[in-house]
Amino acid sequence: MRKIYFLFASLLAGNFLFSQATPPPADDNSLSMANTQGLLRTQLTLTPSWMMKGTSGNDSTSISSARTNVYLHGTLEYYWTEHFSTRGDIYYFLNKNSAPGGLKKNHSLQVGCSYHFMKGMSLDPYVGVCGGISLVQISPMDFMKGDSTFLPNYQVPSHLDPVWAPRVGMNFYGQHVFHFFVEAQYLMGTYRPAIGPILSINEIRISAGLGFNFVILHKEATVRPAI
């Protein structure tokens, strides 16, 4: 009988060991990033961009040169290892140009990957590449034939165009809740409508701001208390 009580008592002791919770941190701000593996990084920011001239056939053209476009840019990035991450980006075009032939829609959806140079550091410089698709449309315009208007105020249908872009950037992980980031991408693509001229949609997009971290895996290794 005594043996059974001992066994029971030892099982209970084991349960107490399992039921102990990790003591909560005194203050969330005292935690910092130690390791980016298993991290889900998110951000939403405003991104200015500048169109670059690109070649289209024998001509050098741009869909809206000398104009700054602004996008709402959202990112979801997952770090598979400390050096490698995959990401999805969405760009929503905000400041449409209502002038005839101006850029009306240029929304993009991109998927890509990044290589992060440093390991276990607060500074996280990286390079990456992504591919995707852009929904492009220009504002209604007149199509002239000689001196007469052939198609007055004609709205060209919106069009899906494949795009791709190299990217370079830097994250700064000070705290485990959020981070600062700055990045630039050179988007390359060509607008090929059913009607109207073929134009380049190459542009440089620069994003910067505050992003949020969600640690999904390897929580103990990823977040450390600051000393």
Binding site: G57, I133, T190, P193, P197, I198
Partner: peptide
């Protein structure tokens, strides 16, 4: 795959 290419500047 969805592929696009230009034929000069006058076709797609």
């Amino acid at each position: 795959d969805y592929l696009m290419s230009s034929i000069g500047t006058i076709g797609t």
